[in-house]
Amino acid sequence: MTAIVSRAPRPRRAPPVPLFLFVGSLVLYVGVALWTGQTSQLQTDGWVGLLQRMVALGIVSVGQTFVILCASIDLSVANLISVGAVAASFIMQGRDSMMLPAVAVVLTISVVVGAINGAIIAGLRVNPLIATLGVGLVLQGLLSASFTDFAGSVPQAFQAFAYGALGPVPYSVLGLFALALAAWLTLGATRFGAHLYAVGGNAEGARLAGVRTNLVMVSAHVICSVLAGVTGLYLASRLRSGAPWVGRDGVYDLESIAVVVIGGTLLAGGRGGVWGTLAGVLLFATLDAALNMLGVPAYPKLILRGAIVILAVAAYAARTREHVA
């Protein structure tokens, strides 16, 4: 060394979480398929099946990403999914003519619920966990009081949403990726996206800089709720009818939060993105498929699901030195 080179410390780059998760999921999927000798899972149908497992959780989780990015959270999604699924199939009653009205009603309900969530959090300053938990309870109570079983049915045409395909790839999978692309553009290339990160990073700072933080918060919740409503529509299409427990049975509230966190978005808001979330969804779909291939029965699977959620969230959180409650 002849000269002392003062080198500026290289900016620390965040590890490419989405890439790790993506590769990890592929290795896991292929590995389990080979190990159990179910090589048919490695042909087109198997891969398509894997992608299809991503759709429902994927749509909600993209929405959940928006609210978590602005340091909020939405625990009402599972209940709203049930409301959406039941409302859709109840209004359609198997009639083609009622498809558009049903979709319109579900989306309207979702916008209203999202606006209520946002207004309670931003306007009344209620902790978002409690606000959305409360709204979720209200929704579930009203739904279970009105319906106790599968209600109505969706017409053949509406089932194309879940079962139709372009070549080997289902519409729903294409739709999920189109949605993710749109979300990515919204977050990265629009003023709203920039404001969202700003509010999540430092709400007071953003407010002083002239961002209308309350409006951003309400908008994020409306987006999240609308996507939960769309998930409900998808489930109605897939199950051919809606029941008041479809959302809760899918544990969409907990799992959507878990995949967002696994995807590298901070629960405290302000940092993260939609591709990480999608990679997290892929990981969950892969685990689900792998447990199926391994023939793990339903109840142990429930235990594993819980443990995986805890460990996955802990994998990120364990590094922090601060106290967490």
Partner: peptide
Amino acid sequence: VSFLKAPSIIATLGMLLCVDGAAMM
């Protein structure tokens, strides 16, 4: 919550799934 630093609302929801699964099993 204390050592893995998972927020308790997620940790205990995960535990809810585990304990429910154990009861059913």
